[in-house]
């Protein structure tokens, strides 16, 4: 079967984070927190996990005096997500036939 099932996206929070970063050029920590309704610690650990795999990259900036942490999907991350999507789509197709 085409496509690769990626263990990194087995967790629903990580799947959601990656979906958001596929649709947005970048997304910041607090907006993630509000949209996903998870705790700081939980979110941070999933983000770190994706970062360690090289799927997302972090950028810290200052808006005036407030720090903001922005996340972007890397090329590797996008490819992995697309392969994961392909796997899911093929799985649905083969389940139907």
């Amino acid at each position: 079967m085409k496509g690769i099932y990626d263990k990194a996206f087995e967790n629903i929070v990580r799947l959601r984070i990656m979906s958001i970063l596929m649709a947005n050029e970048q997304y910041d920590f607090n907006s993630f927190k509000e949209l996903l309704e998870v705790t700081d610690g939980n979110l941070a650990s999933h983000l770190r996990n994706l970062e360690n795999q090289g799927y997302i990259q972090v950028e810290k900036i200052f808006l005036g005096r407030k720090p903001q942490t922005n996340y972007q999907a890397t090329k590797t991350g996008r490819k992995a997500f697309e392969a994961h999507l392909e796997f899911l789509e093929n799985l649905i197709k083969s389940n139907k036939s």
Partner: peptide
């Protein structure tokens, strides 16, 4: 789930 997240974000 993926589609919903893309939409909502």
């Amino acid at each position: 789930e993926i589609k919903a997240m893309m939409e909502r974000s």
